[in-house]
């Protein structure tokens, strides 16, 4: 196996509150190899965005990493100070967020934001930076980039703004881009353009992408591997095709079953009864057991570990029981 670019081990993120700590990410371990797109899916509140934020050190206070490690190319990130972070974030890890409007400063032209970011991370003159900015805009597919370099963010449409944000993330040629719901705020026809762009950049530059989204369709089209999160925990990971078409975990299975598709018209959609528990009310044992049709006694008391049985790794006592042996 290739050396992993990003390696997260047993990550635990908590938000201290006066009623005790809320554990929003609970023992997540994952790896990303260079040039791969890892899709992280889950319903809202599953902890996928918090995982992404923890990796780039942008947890909203008072949230903090209480346990676990994050390594990027062998360098430990989770213990970095604010100053040290500035060298990593933007240069080695880029970020793209949901709302392109709030990711750009409305008071500066697009060109200025790009050149400033470039010069923060790379040793370049103003002129060189401008040339690079132009090149980046062209690369993310902005037509007539030379004319638009001095335009203001509000003069761009939503899809074009998201392209600019991606160009910003690419400024220093990072090894990894964390993209949190990059297409959620966009129209379907624009969504496809953006996912195609991410995929192409990944292929051409060997940049790895951690694609965080709630949209299984986007994942299926874009990701190489998928990690499914539920109530702050990883329940299943594996190659996208296996995970979508032959899932093992009952939650993943239920999730795939309840997504309507354009190809069939069932009388009823499969549905998972109930809702995902809030971080405060996660049940003991397997977090999914109250909603699980397969739950047995053991699921209610013991938390199942993520057991690798290629091609998938699954955390389930029933479907992946060789956890016994481990």
């Amino acid at each position: 196996m290739t050396e992993s670019l990003l390696s997260v081990r047993d990550l635990i993120v908590e938000f201290p509150t006066r009623r005790g700590a809320l554990r929003v990410v609970d023992g997540v371990s994952l790896d990303i190899v260079p040039g791969e797109v890892l899709g992280v899916v889950g319903e809202s509140g599953a902890g996928k965005s918090q995982t992404g934020a923890a990796i780039i050190g942008l947890l909203e206070p008072p949230g903090r990493i209480v346990d676990g490690t994050v390594h990027l190319e062998g360098e430990r990130l989770d213990t970095l100070s604010g100053d040290q972070w500035r060298r990593v974030r933007g240069r080695r890890i880029g970020a793209v967020f949901q709302d392109p409007l709030t990711s750009l400063n409305p008071l500066y032209t697009v060109g200025r934001q790009l050149t400033e970011t470039i010069r923060t991370h790379l040793d370049m003159t103003e002129k060189q930076a401008r040339a690079r900015a132009l090149e980046l805009l062209g690369e993310v597919g902005i037509p007539a980039a030379a004319d638009r370099l001095d335009a203001w963010p509000h003069q761009f449409s939503g899809g074009m703004r998201q392209r600019v944000v991606i160009a910003l993330a690419l400024c220093a040629n990072p090894r990894l881009i964390i993209a949190d719901e990059p297409t959620t705020a966009l129209d379907v026809s624009i969504q496809a353009q953006i996912t195609a762009l991410l995929k192409r950049l990944c292929r051409e530059h060997g940049t790895a992408v951690m694609l965080i989204t709630h949209d299984m369709g986007v994942i299926a089209e874009t990701a190489d591997r998928v990690a499914v999160m539920y109530a702050g925990r990883l329940v299943e990971t594996g190659p996208v095709d296996d995970l979508v078409n032959r899932p093992r975990h009952p939650y993943t299975e239920g999730l795939m079953g309840c997504i309507p598709t354009m190809h069939a018209r069932p009388v009823r959609l499969d549905q998972i009864e109930g809702a995902m528990p809030a971080p405060r009310a996660v049940p003991p044992g397997c977090a999914f057991h109250p909603r699980c049709p397969l739950a047995v006694e053991r699921c209610t008391s013991e938390r199942p570990p993520l057991v690798a049985r290629p091609p998938l790794a699954t955390a389930c006592w029933v479907r992946s029981p060789d956890g016994d042996a481990a």
């Binding site: 379907v188 969504q191 369709g217 979508v244 190809h263």
Partner: peptide
């Protein structure tokens, strides 16, 4: 037709998709 081509689909991720050019 373009709208249907554009929508990502879980079961047929590899069908030949041509993202619709331009914006509304």
């Amino acid at each position: 037709r373009l709208l249907m081509e554009t929508v990502p689909d879980l079961r047929h991720p590899d069908r030949d998709r041509r993202p619709m050019a331009g914006e509304v």
